[in-house]
Structures are given as structure tokens and as C-alpha cells.
Nucleic acid binder design. Structure first.
Lengths: 130, 130
DNA sequence: CTGGGTGCAAACCCTTTGCAATTCG
DNA sequence: CGAATTGCAAAGGGTTTGCACCCAG
């Protein structure tokens, strides 16, 4: 369990930068496209590998969107998301009660090593008008 | 928006039956395997199509498990799941507080047409001992 | 009869992986 | 220099689809 050795490559920096600019969750392929459009082209496989690594180290948030995995740079504290199902705009929300509820429910049934996923979907004010 | 016309075929009945017997969430492929083992073989594509249809009509619960979609016949009322991440055993749980929280959070931000997903994962008592 | 359902295989999509060439440190 | 990283293209896993055949209504 040694600290993973990570190199500073142009590609890694590019992916992190693209992620920093993104306001919404983006899939590996979307990041790949974004990079290509700004001329900072990076191999698709590398984008996948980099985003996975970032997610593993907990530096970015992950969300399962239909059949694909999307990533986003978020605040470091534990939180959940309110996502517009149309434009994908995202708002971070906290849910202290939900945390306690999840833990209680789990321990009530003898479950250990508990995690949970909570996502709220809806139409944001802008999209709701359309 | 007319009621979808559904025929009663051997295959459809077989899938529904397999699902009824399942105690845990099962993927299309798992259902397909189950059916083959009991001699009630059904084409894989048909299993996919049938499960999708059942999910669309709200007759079964859906869960996203890593890269695949799993289905389960559940109680008709709204509820969430406590799932063992090892053996996939599942317990239905209610979360009235979570429902209200989700709705409040959403309306606070002007979101409408709100839905939410809540899943709690952990190791069940049996798997925790291993 | 006749249109929806089925089965097979090919097609798809997202993701992972093998491996040689490249580059950070 | 040596090991980690990259890129490409091929492979993989899950799911969808085209299309000819079949069967419930």
C-alpha cells in the first residue's frame, strides 16, 4: 500500500484541466472530444486510464449515467448531486440526515462496510420552461 | 399513448416466472442462464427485450450494477434497497425522510419533475464473516 | 390471416488490454 | 538509463438491431 507514483505528463495535465473547466459530469469520451477541440489531443485510452486513476484516488466524483461512467471535479467533502436530466447541469447538495439514515438502516440489518449512492434528478428551472 | 398490446407468449411467461423465483437482482444474462438450466430456453435478445419492457411498464425494479443492468420483482410501493455488494442479497427498505428531503432539495433549487435513486451497499452479515 | 414476438447473428457502444515507442525523473 | 506512460488497434463485455420466420389473437 505504498503511495502510487504519478508522473506529470502533458496528457495528465490536459485531462485534469479539461475536467476543471467542465461544469457538468463528463464521460471519458466527452473529455476526449473536448481535448481534441482545443488541440490538446490525448489518446482515448489514456483519457480512460487517467480518469479512472483520478477517481480511484478520490480526486474526482463519479456517476453512472445510463451505460457510461461520468466524472466531475467536486468539492472534497461528502455530498450528493441534484442533476438536470435534460442539460445535465449539476448542483451539489448535502444530506446529513440521509447519511445517518443509510448507516442506521444498514446496521439494523447487520451490514458493514457501508456506502451509498444518492442522486436526485429533475428538470432545472431553465429546462423546465422549454 | 394507448395501452401497449402485449401478447402472452411462452417466452414472456418464462422470463416473468424466472424473475418471480429470483430473490436477488439479476441481469438479463443471468435470467437467460437460469432459463436455460430449467430447460425453458429463451433467446438472449428476447430476454433483453422482455426485461426492458417490464421495466418500462414499471412492473419490475431496475438497478445499475457496474456495467450492467439488473432487474428484480419488488413490492409495488416506492422503496429503496440495501444490497450486499458480495452476494447481492437484497433487503427492501423505506425512507420516508429521504423522500421528503429529496423533494425539498429539488424544489429549493426550482427543479421539477423530480425522481431520485438511493441505494445502500454493504456486506451482509454472512459475507462479512468471510 | 397479420402484426407483434422470437431467434440468430451481426452490429454497436463503452471500456479494457497487449505491446512497441516514448518520455519523465 | 529505467520505469511509468502513451497510443494505437485489437479484444472484450453488455446490449441493441436487422431481418426472416413463427405464432397468438
Amino acid at each position: 500500500m505504498s503511495t502510487a507514483p504519478l508522473r506529470n505528463t502533458r496528457q495528465r495535465a490536459a485531462v485534469i484541466s479539461a475536467l476543471a473547466d467542465a461544469e457538468v459530469f463528463k464521460s471519458s469520451q466527452e473529455i476526449h472530444d473536448d481535448l481534441r477541440q482545443r488541440g490538446e489531443s490525448v489518446g482515448l485510452a489514456t483519457v480512460y486510464r487517467t480518469l479512472q486513476a483520478l477517481a480511484d484516488s478520490g480526486d474526482v466524483d463519479v456517476i453512472a449515467r445510463d451505460g457510461e461512467t461520468a466524472y466531475r471535479q467536486c468539492s472534497p467533502s461528502h455530498h450528493h448531486h441534484l442533476v438536470c436530466r435534460r442539460c445535465h447541469s449539476t448542483i451539489e447538495v448535502e444530506a446529513p440526515d440521509v447519511e445517518t439514515w443509510a448507516n442506521r438502516v444498514a446496521s439494523d440489518h447487520g451490514f458493514v462496510d457501508v456506502t451509498h449512492t444518492v442522486e436526485v434528478y429533475g428538470l432545472c428551472p431553465l429546462c423546465a420552461r422549454a
